[in-house]
Nucleic acid binder design. Structure first.
Lengths: 290, 290
DNA sequence: ACCATCAATTCCACGATGTGGAATTCGATG
DNA sequence: CATCGAATTCCACATCGTGGAATTGATGGT
């Protein structure tokens, strides 16, 4: 991805700002609950899988577990209802108990509601599929999506899907918006995972630099070469959580002119959204809107 | 007002005075993953807690774990983001990672959408708070809720909350709608949990009989004596999952006349809903409606 | 201020529990 | 039918989780 020189930065990203201290991982690795952590990382792997779900091999590899170990844990998770399995394809997907827990785990700030209008306006304007992404640990999470009128990727990201921070436009924009120390930590943590997306830690670092210089993120789908994404980080995130808006379309639709157009639109919407987010009070303990 | 025997308020039994009996591991001796099961049952306990969340003691007791064990597991679950903790009250509640998983774990049938109209009509008609409940393992789960104009319970059930099958009107209706063999199994499995709600397995059995004979469930709030509930099971459930509709109000609002009125309304709405459910196709892999 | 009480947290010796290499079965593909 | 990779089962070993006991912290009553 070369930088077209005339793509001037649309907005200044204020780097290295404190995110309000959201770290919770520094748990001594010696503490007694390896199994639980492994189980959770299997769940994360499953929710990173797209399409028809993930096979044992994929999950074991992804979580860095021996196959028999993964198998045993998956069986328990399935028995408990956290996972479901399609007997035909032998793939796992998230189970109904997780949906049920999700109902009870209302977020302190309802990002989807707050950004609904923004997503709709963008989709309306560009006609392509628009995403709301946020950070979740070392992953980017697809929080919401609006499908545009134009053709969409063959295997689109679904709401709730995860991928490593830095992989994909929306994800890259989120990563680049983190303080540098965080960026380094995340890239280091994800180093092993980039390979399966045809990337390397080194390349991600370059992308982050470019994204920061440019003010927004572009990707030319390395995985599926036909698609391209444009994304911009959302001010100080949503309720303290780093986030981004992104637009994905077939590559032909996103030539340089149009990239610039979309980027300007995203920048405008991001600014408006930031104003809304600044005003909106915390919505402390409310159920998910019906 | 004199109440028929089945309406007689149950006297409040002292909650959890004696736990001299410390039976460890009611968990079936299954293949290698006791920890994971314990962790999941802690999550279930947390999502059964109302109000400000659950303390270590409550959770350890509820899950039948020793306090240090529960403490260690809770710490890991928190570090992983499945739980959050309020440092002031030292209580746990479900964490944002569960919300995120919930986004990805779309149910095969969107019960909330299918029943939205029904809930609204009932609430409109009676003016009290209306619930949609379903079965989840040995628990009843609050899937959805509409608040009526009238006064609502001090500590209302929230969307996503769980309680043991049989405790509360909506939950009792679900239990009574199960095949007898299932009912026995569930009551046996929950036997230890009824006590903290001031109930016994024996009494639940009686309630189930009464509910089946009557065709709908009534409870006079055992926990907070001011409230009363009326509930009816939904035909063959929703997408194969047993479920119920319930109405809760302050006891004075629900005298015998009104109970009968509400019950008739519920029966009518249940019949209409059953017809809708019979037609509605499965909604295979769709995200949660925005 | 002081003690009493109960919850939360830390410690640690013990052994049950989870582990993963190896072997076996299953399923798809040519 | 043969071949290969994935899924599943087996099992001896020692790692990891366990819970009783001790310590610390919070709360409330007098």
């Amino acid at each position: 991805m070369t930088l077209p020189p005339y793509l001037a930065p649309v907005s200044r990203i204020d780097l290295d700002r404190s995110w309000g201290l959201r770290l919770m991982d520094p748990l001594p690795p010696a503490d007694g609950a390896r199994v639980v952590r492994r189980a959770v990382s299997l769940l994360r792997e499953v929710s990173a899988s797209r399409g028809n779900g993930a096979t044992l091999k994929m999950l074991a590899d992804g979580a860095g577990l021996a196959q028999p170990t993964a198998h045993r844990l998956l069986k328990v998770l399935q028995a408990e209802g956290l996972l479901e399995r399609d007997p035909a394809s032998r793939t796992y997907r998230l189970g109904s108990l997780l949906y049920e827990f999700g109902l009870a785990a209302a977020p302190r700030v309802d990002a989807r509601r707050l950004c609904a209008g923004t997503l709709e306006r963008i989709t309306e304007a560009v006609g392509d599929t628009t995403y709301l992404n946020c950070r979740s640990g070392d992953d980017a999470l697809c929080l919401d999506r609006r499908e545009g009128a134009s053709e969409i990727p063959a295997l689109p990201i679904e709401i709730g899907n995860r991928r490593p921070l830095g992989v994909g436009a929306g994800s890259l924009a989120v990563l680049a918006s983190l303080p540098s120390s965080e960026v380094d930590a995340v890239i280091a943590a994800n180093a092993g995972r980039y390979r399966r997306h045809g990337l390397t830690a080194e390349r991600i670092r370059t992308y982050v630099e470019a994204t920061r210089a440019r003010g927004f993120a572009i990707t030319s789908g390395r995985i599926v070469a036909r698609y391209r994404g444009v994304a911009i980080a959302i001010g100080n995130g949503i309720g303290g959580t780093p986030a981004s808006l992104s637009v994905v379309a077939v590559a032909e639709r996103l030539d340089l002119r149009r990239i610039e157009l979309v980027a300007r639109l995203l920048a405008r919407e991001e600014k408006a959204l930031r104003a809304i987010l600044a005003i909106e009070p915390e919505n402390p303990r409310k159920g998910i809107a019906p």
